[in-house]
């Protein structure tokens, strides 16, 4: 599903992502873990074809992110960090805009909306302006936008950041529900989240992959809790 091949990206003198390669298959929920500034978001932005890599490439569903960015975007659902939205639109207007852009029309649109609105629990704010929504509803609206075309590959950049415990729980439930037939990459620095939803974890620091394993295996290997593992690994490289 996802094949990342020696991806590299710099911002001026800073190397954000340094020669990263990995693969992910359907059914995998891959936790992308790392301290702030480790290169998680940059990697995800490159996979979503928002940023062009300096060198290396990746393919998603067989489409190359450098050569076929539009096809890649058709095949993925991407939730950006901080869930940016068009504040002056209503939730309904926004979802219809995403349908327009994704060529979901007529019957298919009605069906997609009927599926996604209850799934993300945004019926109550459907006709409200996005500007007036709470953080939780904003995040869920973004998520609805990212999931509306039922993509096989999901890239979620800190999907639970800023949510209250109940909302976090709901988002995780949602991810678990979808996990079976999708390939999901989640970036986060919340370790309990990795334990709750991920069956594989990649720890990245200073632009490089430090560990590629599963949460359970990591705990076994280091014989301690995940946050301690995280500290050990990212400190070593600092």
């Amino acid at each position: 599903m996802i094949k990342v091949n020696r991806l590299r990206r710099t911002f001026g003198p800073i190397i954000a992502v340094d020669d990263i390669s990995f693969e992910a298959q359907t059914g995998e929920v891959l936790g992308f873990l790392g301290p702030n500034g480790a290169g998680k978001s940059t990697t995800m932005k490159m996979l979503a074809c928002f940023l062009a890599p300096d060198s290396g490439t990746a393919s998603i569903n067989g489409f190359d992110i450098v050569k076929q960015p539009v096809d890649v975007r058709k095949n993925i659902g991407y939730l950006a960090e901080n869930a940016p939205l068009y504040n002056e639109m209503t939730v309904a207007g926004f979802l219809n805009f995403v349908c327009d852009a994704r060529q979901i029309n007529g019957q298919a649109r009605t069906k997609a909306l009927d599926r996604i609105v209850p799934m993300c629990a945004i019926e109550g704010v459907y006709h409200q302006t996005i500007d007036t929504l709470s953080k939780g509803f904003r995040r869920r609206t973004s998520l609805a936008g990212a999931l509306i075309h039922d993509p096989k590959v999901l890239i979620l950049d800190e999907p639970t950041d800023g949510l209250d415990p109940n909302q976090k729980y709901e988002v995780r439930q949602l991810i678990n529900k979808m996990a079976k037939d999708k390939c999901i990459i989640i970036s986060t620095h919340i370790l309990e989240e990795v334990q709750a939803v991920c069956n594989r974890t990649i720890i990245i620091d200073q632009g490089r992959i430090r560990v590629d394993s599963s949460p359970a295996k990591l705990k076994e290997e280091y014989k301690c809790e995940l946050d301690e593992v995280f500290r050990k690994i990212t400190k070593k490289s600092a």
Partner: peptide, 14 residues
């Protein structure tokens, strides 16, 4: 400024 450009350019829009 609002970052919505990231939303726009991760949709299949050139």
């Amino acid at each position: 400024k609002s970052g919505s450009i990231e939303l726009l350019f991760t949709l299949p829009i050139t």
